[in-house]
Design a protein around this nucleic acid. Structure first.
Lengths: 111, 111
DNA sequence: CTGTATCCTCCAAGATACTG
DNA sequence: CAGTATCTTGGAGGATACAG
């Protein structure tokens, strides 16, 4: 299990629901299709991915484009909106914090 | 209802559990006692405040000091650790983002 | 492939009552 | 004042089956 907000799991900072941060990370490098998202997000079910994506659309962070080419099956792609890209900044700040203080967080838990 | 991460409620960025961000904000200006925290955090029950505080202690963000003076009842105070204060930085980044994009978030929801 | 429809489980969070 | 002890519940999230 990895963390949207960096190394993995311990950071108290979250973005949206359980998967939202990771979805945003997956869309960072460009538009992706439904099944492409399911690969890095191992373990997510179709239902939950749909739910998270709908929530991100509702909040204006992600947009769904239905590229229907004639003679082809419709191939919708999801991509970040400008708003969605803008949230990468605070996410990266959170990520940097988590990386900087990883040892402190680990120490606090085990002691 | 207000938001740990700024204006109020809509921001997809969260810190810890439901109350953690707000608790951290309440401790920003100095140590506070249990009952002092319950005032700004209106509606929180003793049980849930205890739980959140224990989680913050476990993660090393908050420390509980039991100032027992002779002849007085014990008066524990909660305060941020250095680690706890350090998380204010990414929280403020998230806060700034939320403030900057408040209108976008509102527009996305209502349309 | 891209979903929707059901059903189920678990747990965060609240209500309430009680204790040192 | 500063909690602990129970009980309850709404909803997030997962499993599985089915659909266009």
């Amino acid at each position: 299990m990895f963390d949207p907000v960096c190394p993995s799991g311990l950071s108290p900072i979250r973005v949206g629901d359980k998967w939202a941060g990771m979805i945003i990370r997956c869309l960072e490098e460009g538009p992706r299709r439904f099944s492409e998202l399911r690969v890095p997000l191992r373990g997510i079910t179709a239902k939950v991915l749909t739910q998270s994506l709908r929530a991100l659309q509702r909040d204006g962070l992600v947009i769904r484009n239905s590229h229907a080419a004639p003679g082809h099956a419709p191939a919708p792609v999801y991509e970040l909106t400008a708003l969605g890209r803008s949230i990468l900044e605070p996410m990266n700040a959170a990520c940097a914090w988590a990386a900087d203080h990883w040892d402190d967080l680990l120490d606090a838990r085990e002691s």
